[in-house]
Deep mutational scan, measured.
Amino acid sequence: GQVHVGDTTYHFPNPEEARKFAEKAAKENNLQVTQHGNTFKVE
């Protein structure tokens, strides 16, 4: 799974890890998570 936060892309071998990371980043920054397959975008 990939997580895009601003201009930075994080790669995770496990989509579940990617999702947890995205949700945590979104919560900390008052942002939203959008999911496209195994790619998550925090914005």
Rank of each mutant, 00 (worst) to 15 (best):
E17W: 06
A26T: 03
V5S: 03
Y10S: 01
Q32V: 14
G1T: 09
K27G: 07
N38Y: 07
G1D: 04
P13E: 13
Y10E: 01
T8P: 01
N30T: 05
F21M: 02
L31V: 07
N14V: 04
N29E: 07
T34S: 09
D7N: 14
V3I: 03
D7T: 12
G6L: 08
E16H: 08
F21K: 00
H36N: 12
H4P: 01
A25K: 13
K24V: 08
H36G: 04
V33Q: 02
A26V: 03
N29K: 12
A26F: 02
E23I: 12
K24I: 10
Q35D: 03
V42K: 02
F21L: 00
T9Y: 09
P15L: 15
V33P: 02
Y10T: 02
N14A: 04
D7L: 11
K41T: 15
N38Q: 05
T8L: 14
F40E: 02
E16V: 07
H11Q: 08
K41Q: 09
P13L: 10
V3W: 02
A25W: 15
E23P: 00
N30V: 04
T9V: 15
T39I: 14
K41G: 04
T9E: 06
D7Q: 12
T34V: 12
K27Q: 11
N14L: 04
E28K: 11
F12A: 01
A18L: 00
Q32A: 10
Q2M: 14
E43R: 08
G37C: 13
Q32D: 06
V33F: 10
A18I: 00
E43N: 08
V33Y: 09
K20G: 05
K27W: 09
H11T: 10
N14K: 04
G37I: 03
N29R: 13
F21W: 09
H11N: 10
E16I: 07
T34H: 10
E43C: 14
Q2E: 11
D7E: 11
D7S: 13
K27F: 11
A25F: 15
N14E: 05
Y10G: 00
A18Q: 01
E28C: 13
K41H: 15
V5P: 00
E28S: 08
V5G: 02
R19W: 06
E17R: 04
H4T: 14
F12R: 00
Y10L: 05
F40I: 04
G37F: 05
D7V: 08
N30P: 02
F40R: 00
K24Q: 12
Q2W: 15
P13Y: 07
R19K: 09
P13V: 10
F21H: 02
T34L: 08
N38F: 07
E17F: 05
F21P: 00
T34F: 13
T8Q: 14
F21N: 00
F12S: 01
E23L: 12
G6M: 07
V5C: 13
K27Y: 10
D7H: 13
E17Q: 09
F12L: 03
K24N: 10
H11L: 11
H36T: 11
Q32P: 06
H11R: 08
H36F: 13
V42I: 09
T39D: 08
V5D: 04
V33K: 01
D7C: 15
N30R: 08
N29Q: 12
G6H: 08
A22Q: 00
N14R: 04
Q2H: 13
F12D: 00
N14F: 05
E16D: 11
R19E: 04
A25I: 15
N38P: 05
R19Q: 07
V33H: 03
K20T: 09
T39E: 10
V33D: 01
A26S: 05
K24M: 12
A22T: 01
Q2V: 15
Q35S: 06
N29W: 14
K41P: 02
P13T: 11
E28W: 10
L31S: 10
V42Y: 02
V5Q: 04
G1W: 15
A26N: 02
N30S: 09
T8M: 14
K20I: 13
R19D: 00
K20N: 09
V33W: 11
N38L: 05
E16W: 10
F12V: 01
K24Y: 11
G1A: 15
E23K: 06
N38V: 05
A18C: 05
T8K: 15
G1M: 09
V33N: 02
K41E: 09
V3F: 03
Q32I: 15
A26K: 02
E28G: 07
L31H: 07
T9I: 15
F21R: 00
L31W: 13
